[in-house]
Computed example of a mutant assay.
Amino acid sequence: MKEKGAATLPAIHGSVVGSGNYIVTVGIGTPKRKFSLIFDTGSDLTWTQCKPCVGFCYQQKEKIFDPKRSKSYRNVSCSSTVCSSLESATGNIPGCASNKTCVYGIQYGDSSFSVGFFAKETLTLTSKDVFPKFLLGCGQNNRGLFRGAAGLLGLGRNKISLVYQTASKYKKRFSYCLPSSSSSTGHLTFGPGIKKSVKFTPLSSAFQGSSFYGLDMTGISVGGEKLPIATTVFSTPGTIIDSGTVITRLPPHAYTVLKTAFRQLMSKYPTAPAVSILDTCYDFSEHETITIPKISFFFNGGVEVDVDVTGIMFPIRASQVCLAFAGNSDPSDVGIFGNVQQHTLEVVYDVAHGQVGFAAGGCS
Rank of each mutant, 00 (worst) to 15 (best):
L9N: 04
V16R: 07
G29T: 11
F35G: 10
D40Y: 07
S43G: 03
S43P: 05
L45A: 08
Q49P: 04
C53W: 00
I64Q: 00
D66L: 00
S77I: 11
S79P: 03
S79V: 12
S88T: 09
T101H: 02
G105M: 08
F118H: 02
G137I: 01
C138N: 01
N141A: 08
G148Y: 09
A149Y: 03
N158V: 00
S161I: 00
F174L: 14
S175V: 05
Y176D: 14
T185C: 11
L188F: 14
G191R: 02
I194W: 10
K199A: 10
S210N: 13
S211T: 12
D216G: 00
M217S: 04
K226D: 08
L227R: 05
G238E: 06
I241C: 06
I241G: 05
T248N: 02
T248I: 13
R249T: 15
H253N: 12
A261H: 10
Q264F: 09
M266I: 07
Y269L: 09
F284H: 02
K294D: 15
N300A: 15
V303T: 09
V309E: 15
V309A: 15
M313R: 00
S319G: 15
A324N: 01
G327D: 05
S329D: 07
S329M: 10
S332E: 11
V340I: 15
Q341T: 14
V348G: 11
C363S: 02
